[in-house]
Design a protein around this nucleic acid. Structure first.
Lengths: 405, 405
DNA sequence: GCGGATTAAATCACGCCATGAATTAAGCCG
DNA sequence: CGGCTTAATTCATGGCGTGATTTAATCCGC
């Protein structure tokens, strides 16, 4: 049942080498066999052998050749974007979004369902997801058998045990067996993860985190979360709940937080907290436009400017904590509120972080903004099945199970 | 030069399997081949083959057999404690300690040199280390060629680049090439690391952290540091300075810290800070006895009790931050001050951590005290060459270089 | 337009590996 | 002292990566 990743046999060696080649190619296309041999350390002979298999399977295709001056031209290789398709689902606080991508992560179809805050029941969300799945398949003309898997990003903690359980505080979900519930409506491989983590992975693969081994993607919306990347992959901790940056304490005995504690970072720099600290009416009927208005007002209102100054101070301290503890190469700030704040306050945030972090690790860390838009949650969710394809884990096995089941 | 860890060839596969067997055996001795086959997943045939090599090399020896009722008895295997020896060095703030162990980590010799705070120059420390090395070799009768390597735990950040550099704030060291300097006096393999990290590794291997995949070892002395273990090994970050727990901000705009920032955890729960916060004269001419006296006084003095209550509060908040960010299985509290405080305050610390951490990850985390004494820094440093032996990296290569040089 | 030079890629022979099956070793028990 | 049982080794087999060799595909100079 459990796809125990075996090691130790000579066959696993091949799978690993194959995986190394696929990863290398996926993030640097197109490339020649020679080039792959150099960067992976595998011999040209092995690259040839493995690539032949990959071409036979249709994962890799030849893509023209590069001119030479006096020798056989190098044939360029790339991942076949149409070898398979992946679906990413973003279960957000106000909507369920489903997107279908090819392997080059080009969007091929999209479906969007608003989610009434009063009806965040599991069954409603499951319905939306399955409806969206059917819609993107129909809309793109992609057959179900061509889909490698479905990634789902959800709010709350996702416990990756023998049965995947979702604990979503904001949704009132407690130990919801989302995978099992979705299984009733689809037999595609499912990958469920926390939305902040999928968004972090999207930034890591395609955004501001490209190439980083150690990074933290901080997400500021109404609340505050983070995705922590160590050694090139997302840190989950012992029960998959790592990355709760928003509830680290930056002020012992400070403002009370909706989590029940006090002095949490989220109680100062979350959008809700910022607006609450300002304490006056602002134009805009939602948090997003209200925060934009507050930032606008800071040019003329001392009170607004003061709130933003404080926000930069606390946020800088929170970032400094990440730098001191993790020593990352990069801190990437995102989320809708993070981007709004970052555009205006990034210099102030950097300065506050500098003051609160140790000199040496701070000097080695760059603080940047996310490069991908709010769709990054779905995009990141869609990378989950791709990750399995590149690793050579389960993908084909699950496919077999599926056709056998 | 650089011992690039190769992968991909069928030979590396053998090295990996060998390593798996060695690790498995090292932490669960003695065991039969059968047992090893079961727990590692390797076939009995492979275990036999690899073990034969290991016995030929002298790393593993047979150690009796287990009675059977009606079958050939299982032969028990264990690591040969005398296959080689390792040296651990603890460069502390007030002394240099050098210890020699066999592979079972039984201490075979020890040398101790006080370090005058006025003479913490690099040359003095190097002299002490080399003198201690000579002393433990002489004292144990172990020949230099039988030593697998020397681990050195130092205060400050250790940058593991092409040349190992030590940045020690308390010692006034800036980019000190300690390895190169020691190399002038010995040709043994050297492994240099931060003292908090070596101590963390000692607790992970032999103390309160045994078996944990994710843990944080928090060390409280005059200052505050930590060793963060993720996926079973120490997290170093991009420039090896990760784990600076003491300088995370628990109180924006709070007490100023010797690092130049303010509101650092260390400015509240470091021994120096605690004594400073109490602000009255205490019996005892050093921090250690003064802190003990303060804890003693808390039984009768409301002011002393108040200081300790506050300490537990801040420390609990700091621990909660670790829990929220890392979601570890265990938090292990150590350092001389950490142990003093922990003995009295552990319930209060746990309660403060509970209040500041999210419910779910807190419930999955145990908060304990270190089990090893203050010698753990040297012990942990000595595990560094053992780690290389178990991994099959460099050890033999370095040995060859040595005899060739 | 054609051979030689040049570089890329595929093929081949070899050595090494893990493994299931078969075999040998080493003890119990009646 | 033979069966019986279990541990450990040995053997034959199929895979694998690799350096050396061969084939493929281009350019260049004449």
């Amino acid at each position: 049942m459990m796809a125990e990743r075996r090691r130790g046999t000579v066959r696993d060696l091949r799978r690993d080498n194959r995986s190394v080649l696929l990863w290398s190619l996926y993030f640097d296309q197109p490339r020649s066999r020679q080039d792959l041999s150099r960067t992976t350390g595998l011999s040209p002979a092995s690259v040839s052998n493995v690539v032949r298999d990959l071409i036979d399977e249709g994962i890799v295709i030849e893509a023209g050749s590069v001119d030479s001056d006096g020798g056989r031209p190098r044939v360029l290789l790339r991942i076949n974007p149409d070898h398979g398709y992946v679906v990413g689902v973003d279960v957000g606080e106000t909507r369920v979004r489903v997107e279908l991508f090819d392997l080059a992560m080009t969007e091929r179809a999209k479906a969007d369902y608003p989610l009434d805050p009063r009806e965040r029941g599991v069954d409603v969300v499951v319905d939306r997801i399955l409806a969206g799945l059917a819609a993107v398949l129909a809309g793109s003309g992609v057959g179900s058998s061509a889909v490698l898997g479905v990634g789902v990003g959800v709010p709350g903690v996702v416990e990756q045990g023998p049965e995947v359980l979702v604990h979503g505080q904001t949704f009132g979900w407690d130990a919801v067996p989302l995978e099992r519930l979705l299984r009733a409506g689809t037999d595609l491989p499912l990958h469920i993860d926390n939305g902040a983590k999928t968004m972090g992975q999207a930034e890591l693969w395609f955004g501001a985190g490209r190439g980083a081994q150690h990074a933290v993607v901080g997400l500021i919306g109404s609340g505050v979360g983070a995705s922590i990347i160590t050694r090139g992959s997302t840190h989950r901790g012992s029960t998959s709940s790592a990355g709760e940056w928003g509830h680290t304490t930056v002020m012992v005995g400070g403002r009370s937080c909706r989590c029940g504690s006090s002095g949490c970072l989220e109680a100062y720099v979350g959008a809700e907290a910022i607006l609450d600290r300002y304490g006056r009416a602002l134009p805009g009927d939602d948090q997003e436009s209200a925060l934009a208005a507050l930032i606008e007002a800071a040019a003329t209102s001392a009170a607004a400017a003061e709130v933003l100054d404080q926000t930069a101070l606390y946020l800088g301290a929170g970032i400094a904590d990440l730098i001191n503890l993790f020593n990352p190469e990069r801190i990437i700030l995102g989320g809708w509120a993070g981007l709004l704040l970052g555009e205006k306050l990034l210099p102030a945030i950097r300065e506050a972080a500098r003051r609160h972090a140790l000199r040496h690790p701070f000097a080695e860390t760059s603080i940047e903004l996310c490069r991908l838009g709010p769709d990054a949650v779905a995009l990141g969710a869609a990378t989950l099945p791709v990750e399995h394809l590149l690793n050579g884990t389960a993908a084909s096995a699950t496919r077999q199970n599926r056709s056998a089941g």
